[in-house]
Design a protein around this nucleic acid. Structure first.
Lengths: 116, 116
DNA sequence: ATTAATACATAGAAGTCTTATGTATAAGAA
DNA sequence: TTCTTATACATAAGACTTCTATGTATTAAT
């Protein structure tokens, strides 16, 4: 597990990137997906996830579909057309940002190496 | 300039990394250095920088030396021995974190490619 | 003479995420 | 069958980080 501070600011990009690749996902699925993808190094807490998903829905970035799984309700989230555009921009910005950070933290490597 | 949210959580790692490489730096120098290193994409605000430097000093991570430049006071910051250890850990964690993020955002690349 | 750059600092507000808590169903273990 | 764990949603209060705005003062440039 990474220290909390280091992860700040990455929640939204991660969620949107996952939705970009998976068409639709439900909250719990997102938490598990991130856990697996990061070998337990990042665990999204529900207290952070659900309010953010609600906010994204209110902003028109995602829309929801409810499904009944037995007696339980599952709420799927997917990107709206506008959400897809926003996500593409954010993902590109994030990749650029990581490239810049790499430049600071691994200055021995050639600039842009391994990045877009 | 990157959007504000994306930079969250990176201020401390960046500052400590710079101090690790430069022995000692003063506040304004840090802001300019980050500006140059990132081609104006990241500009550390003074309202974020100074309180953080003061906090790091209170925690024993950095110590200060004041110097008079003409009639102006310049306050240099440098890592304490303990600060050097902490910084090394944090820098390694950050590089690991970036590698994990790259794995999510550029899954077409081989894992660990270009990272430590 | 005025503006921009250098150089420090703090207060209040905004925003992000954590911790804690709550509800409820389904599956698996004892 | 009972208890625990996993699944699945949700919110409120607080901690923490960073921004915006403001303030002071010296030096360099126009």
């Amino acid at each position: 597990m990474y220290s909390k501070e280091i992860i700040k600011g990455t929640l939204k990009p991660i969620i949107l990137k996952l939705l970009q690749e998976n068409n639709r996902m439900y909250g719990y699925e997102i938490t598990q997906s991130v856990k697996e993808l990061t070998a337990n190094k990042i665990q999204i807490t529900e207290g952070a996830l659900y309010p953010l998903l609600h906010k994204l829905e209110a902003e028109g970035v995602v829309f929801t579909e409810k499904e009944n799984i037995g007696k339980r309700i599952r709420k799927y989230y997917a990107l709206t057309p506008r959400g897809k555009e926003k996500t593409q921009e954010l993902v590109e910005e994030f990749i650029d940002f990581m490239s810049t950070m790499k430049h600071i933290f691994e200055p021995n490597l050639k600039p842009g190496y391994g990045a877009a």
